[in-house]
Protein backbone atom coordinates (compact mmCIF):
# COMPACT_ATOMS: atom_id res chain seq x y z
CA UNK A 1 0.00 0.00 0.00
CA UNK A 2 1.35 3.40 -0.95
CA UNK A 3 1.95 5.78 1.89
CA UNK A 4 0.72 9.34 1.59
CA UNK A 5 1.93 12.62 3.01
CA UNK A 6 0.54 16.14 3.26
CA UNK A 7 2.81 19.04 4.15
CA UNK A 8 1.96 22.40 5.69
CA UNK A 9 4.59 25.04 4.94
CA UNK A 10 4.60 28.00 7.32
CA UNK A 11 8.19 29.13 6.59
CA UNK A 12 8.98 32.06 4.30
CA UNK A 13 11.20 31.68 1.19
CA UNK A 14 13.48 34.34 2.65
CA UNK A 15 14.85 31.80 5.11
CA UNK A 16 16.60 28.49 4.57
CA UNK A 17 13.67 26.76 6.30
CA UNK A 18 11.50 26.51 3.22
CA UNK A 19 14.31 24.68 1.39
CA UNK A 20 14.13 22.02 4.11
CA UNK A 21 10.40 21.73 3.45
CA UNK A 22 11.12 21.34 -0.27
CA UNK A 23 13.78 18.66 0.35
CA UNK A 24 11.38 16.62 2.46
CA UNK A 25 8.69 16.76 -0.22
CA UNK A 26 11.27 15.89 -2.91
CA UNK A 27 12.49 12.91 -0.87
CA UNK A 28 8.92 11.72 -0.33
CA UNK A 29 8.46 11.58 -4.11
CA UNK A 30 11.77 9.71 -4.53
CA UNK A 31 10.65 7.26 -1.82
CA UNK A 32 7.41 6.60 -3.77
CA UNK A 33 5.29 8.28 -1.15
CA UNK A 34 2.20 10.01 -2.55
CA UNK A 35 2.32 13.70 -1.72
CA UNK A 36 -1.36 14.64 -1.60
CA UNK A 37 -0.54 18.32 -1.40
CA UNK A 38 1.49 21.13 0.06
CA UNK A 39 -0.48 23.79 1.90
CA UNK A 40 1.25 27.15 2.25
CA UNK A 41 0.09 29.07 5.31
CA UNK A 42 1.19 32.16 7.26
CA UNK A 43 4.47 33.52 5.79
CA UNK A 44 4.72 30.29 3.77
CA UNK A 45 2.44 31.88 1.13
CA UNK A 46 5.34 34.10 0.05
CA UNK A 47 6.79 31.00 -1.64
CA UNK A 48 4.31 31.64 -4.46
CA UNK A 49 5.23 35.28 -5.08
CA UNK A 50 5.99 36.10 -8.72
CA UNK A 51 7.99 39.22 -7.97
CA UNK A 52 10.13 37.98 -5.11
CA UNK A 53 13.56 38.64 -6.60
CA UNK A 54 16.14 36.20 -5.32
CA UNK A 55 19.67 37.12 -6.53
CA UNK A 56 20.65 34.86 -9.43
CA UNK A 57 23.62 33.34 -7.56
CA UNK A 58 21.34 32.15 -4.74
CA UNK A 59 19.09 29.13 -4.52
CA UNK A 60 15.91 29.65 -6.54
CA UNK A 61 13.52 28.10 -4.05
CA UNK A 62 10.40 29.31 -5.87
CA UNK A 63 11.51 27.57 -9.08
CA UNK A 64 12.00 24.38 -7.11
CA UNK A 65 8.41 24.48 -5.83
CA UNK A 66 7.14 25.19 -9.35
CA UNK A 67 9.06 22.21 -10.69
CA UNK A 68 7.42 19.93 -8.11
CA UNK A 69 4.07 20.91 -9.54
CA UNK A 70 5.11 20.78 -13.20
CA UNK A 71 7.05 17.50 -13.11
CA UNK A 72 5.45 15.62 -10.25
CA UNK A 73 1.94 17.11 -10.25
CA UNK A 74 2.18 17.94 -6.54
CA UNK A 75 -0.78 20.22 -5.72
CA UNK A 76 0.48 23.50 -4.25
CA UNK A 77 -2.24 25.24 -2.27
CA UNK A 78 -2.00 28.79 -1.06
CA UNK A 79 -4.15 29.94 1.85
CA UNK A 80 -6.06 32.80 0.23
CA UNK A 81 -6.55 34.76 3.46
CA UNK A 82 -2.85 34.56 4.33
CA UNK A 83 -1.99 35.55 0.73
CA UNK A 84 -4.38 38.49 0.88
CA UNK A 85 -2.77 39.73 4.10
CA UNK A 86 0.65 39.62 2.46
CA UNK A 87 -0.30 41.58 -0.64
CA UNK A 88 -0.37 38.68 -3.09
CA UNK A 89 -3.92 39.08 -4.37
CA UNK A 90 -4.53 41.29 -7.39
CA UNK A 91 -8.18 41.98 -8.23
CA UNK A 92 -9.62 39.79 -11.01
CA UNK A 93 -6.29 38.17 -11.83
CA UNK A 94 -5.05 35.43 -9.48
CA UNK A 95 -1.88 34.94 -11.50
CA UNK A 96 -0.82 38.56 -11.64
CA UNK A 97 1.26 38.23 -8.47
CA UNK A 98 1.20 34.47 -7.96
CA UNK A 99 2.84 31.79 -10.10
CA UNK A 100 0.21 29.68 -11.92
CA UNK A 101 1.59 26.47 -10.37
CA UNK A 102 0.02 27.56 -7.09
CA UNK A 103 -3.72 27.36 -6.42
CA UNK A 104 -5.53 29.79 -4.17
CA UNK A 105 -7.48 27.73 -1.67
CA UNK A 106 -9.45 28.20 1.49
CA UNK A 107 -8.44 26.71 4.82
CA UNK A 108 -11.00 23.99 4.10
CA UNK A 109 -8.41 22.52 1.74
CA UNK A 110 -6.14 21.99 4.75
CA UNK A 111 -8.90 19.97 6.40
CA UNK A 112 -9.16 17.79 3.26
CA UNK A 113 -5.41 17.28 3.11
CA UNK A 114 -5.30 16.39 6.81
CA UNK A 115 -7.74 13.55 6.31
CA UNK A 116 -6.60 12.30 2.90
CA UNK A 117 -2.98 11.68 3.82
CA UNK A 118 -1.54 9.11 6.22
CA UNK A 119 0.66 11.75 7.80
CA UNK A 120 0.58 15.53 8.12
CA UNK A 121 3.88 17.34 8.66
CA UNK A 122 4.33 21.05 9.32
CA UNK A 123 7.52 22.73 8.18
Amino acid sequence: MTQSLAVVVTSAPTSNLSYTAFKIVEQAIQSNITVTGVFFYQDGVLNASKYLAIPSDELQIISLWKKLNQQNQVPLHLCSTAAEKRGLIFPDDDNFLIHPEFTLSGLGELVMLTNQADRLVQL
Partner: peptide, 10 residues
Amino acid sequence: NYEYLLELIF
Protein backbone atom coordinates in the same frame (compact mmCIF):
# COMPACT_ATOMS: atom_id res chain seq x y z
CA ASN B 1 19.51 11.49 5.62
CA TYR B 2 16.11 12.65 4.35
CA GLU B 3 15.21 9.15 3.19
CA TYR B 4 15.47 7.83 6.74
CA LEU B 5 13.56 10.84 8.06
CA LEU B 6 10.64 9.90 5.80
CA GLU B 7 10.76 6.34 7.18
CA LEU B 8 10.66 7.72 10.71
CA ILE B 9 7.69 9.93 9.85
CA PHE B 10 5.68 6.89 8.77
